[in-house]
């Protein structure tokens, strides 16, 4: 439970912070390739990235998630991340239980790579993120991606997998919002303690916030 996190030795925190920091760079590189993203005002690009980064990291981590043992396995077993590894980085089951449920549900959609990529792009270009100024421009870019996704599913994804697939994918975006909220809550708690925030990277502190400075 969230009240019983043992903060005294978060042995996985430095490693997970590095992994998340690396992933944030990947998310930025990905966002820059989305048509129209670079044409947004710099402030809007920053607002979109800061609010969606953790959601896109959760989405992209589905590629390494395996239903066999409910771990994130990257290549060999040397890079296998268990739920317990994430708790040793300071997160509680209040985040991890719904996160694993999300990973299982997403995995079972058996998305094509094209659909997976479009879902990440749609997630980044959400006009309702805090701090976004030109919401109508972001909305038009997101609408275009949604139409491409729906067309792709209709033309390239055979039934029965395609049945209600678009609606199920949009539901995943809603799930990500609450995962994001819980992550923020737990991150805030962690970063409030200097002995832990000092183990985070400058990029993580900038994107997720630095309570200390």
């Amino acid at each position: 439970s969230s009240v019983n996190i043992d903060f005294s030795h978060l042995s996985m925190l430095p490693h997970l912070a590095d992994l998340v920091s690396y992933s944030i760079q990947k998310v930025i590189g990905f966002a820059k390739m989305i048509p129209g993203f670079r044409n947004l005002a710099a402030e809007d690009q920053i607002a979109l990235l800061k609010s969606s980064a953790i959601e896109v990291i959760m989405l992209r981590s589905n590629q390494s998630f395996t239903l066999e043992d409910m771990t994130w396995t990257c290549g060999s077993n040397d890079f296998k991340y268990r739920i317990s590894d994430v708790t040793q980085a300071g997160h509680s089951m209040d985040l991890l239980e719904p996160l694993v449920k999300f990973q299982v549900g997403l995995k079972k959609l058996n998305l094509h790579e094209e659909e997976h990529v479009l879902l990440m792009a749609i997630c980044i270009l959400s006009p309702d993120r805090p701090g976004v100024q030109d919401t109508s421009l972001v909305e038009s870019l997101q609408d275009r991606l949604s139409e491409i996704l729906q067309t792709y599913i209709r033309c390239r994804h055979p039934p029965p997998g395609s049945r209600l697939l678009y609606a199920k994918m949009i539901q995943k975006l809603a799930d990500l919002r609450s995962l994001n909220e819980e992550h923020s809550k737990q991150y805030r708690c962690l970063s409030f303690q200097p002995e832990h925030s000092m183990q985070l990277t400058p990029l993580v502190l900038e994107v997720f916030g630095n309570e200390i400075s």
Partner: peptide
């Protein structure tokens, strides 16, 4: 609300090979 400059994000957004 404290002022955020987001210097790293700006740098990574401008950098060509990211």
């Amino acid at each position: 609300k404290k002022k955020e400059n987001n210097a790293l994000l700006r740098y990574l957004l401008d950098k060509d090979d990211v």
